[in-house]
């Protein structure tokens, strides 16, 4: 598992977390290159479908990051985010997928350090978990076999 380089999709909200990532960049904080960033206007615009789609297409982890509660630029968009993520975690768990592969973080535009830390920590976790199981509806062995 040593050479495993996870693919992590990060949905970052435009106003806080993307700016936080930007700050991490200009401040030259180091973080692993495993994340692929998708900039969204608000974390509340990340549908559970997007998250599932990322896993379906082979993501090993999905990070959703937005403004802290109270700071969302659309006032309560991130309220929806946390509701959806909590629900989705439970659902993934019930379907037998490790919900630790989905992570929600609040990262403000000033938290470049936090951004780098989160990416480092999350990448490390996913490395330990190994490659994500496939979404293909093909069981490893037939039931009862």
């Amino acid at each position: 598992m040593k050479d495993f380089e996870p693919r992590i999709i990060a949905f970052l909200c435009n106003w806080c977390s993307y700016a936080g990532a930007d700050l991490a960049g200009v401040s030259r904080f180091q973080y692993p290159p495993n994340i692929r960033v998708i900039r969204v206007m608000c974390s509340g615009s990340v549908s559970p479908h997007h998250v599932l789609h990322a896993f379906q297409r082979g993501a090993d982890g999905v990070l959703v990051a937005g403004c802290h509660i109270g700071d969302c630029h659309y006032l309560k968009g991130n309220y929806m985010t946390v509701k959806r993520v909590k629900f989705l975690e439970g659902l993934l768990q019930f379907a037998g997928y490790d919900s630790a592969r989905l992570r929600l973080e609040w990262i403000s535009a000033a938290e470049g350090i936090k951004f780098a830390e989160v990416v480092r920590d999350f990448t490390e976790k996913i490395k330990q978990l190994g490659p994500a199981p496939s979404f293909e509806a093909v069981p490893e062995r037939a039931l009862g076999a």
Binding site: Q93, F94, A95, G96, Y97, D98, P133, E136, A137, V138, P139, E140, R141, A142, L143
Partner: peptide
């Protein structure tokens, strides 16, 4: 166990 549950679901989803 989560993994067994996953296999259980897949063995059913498989027929959809």
């Amino acid at each position: 166990e989560p993994e067994a549950r996953q296999q259980w679901w897949l063995s059913h989803f498989n027929r959809c």
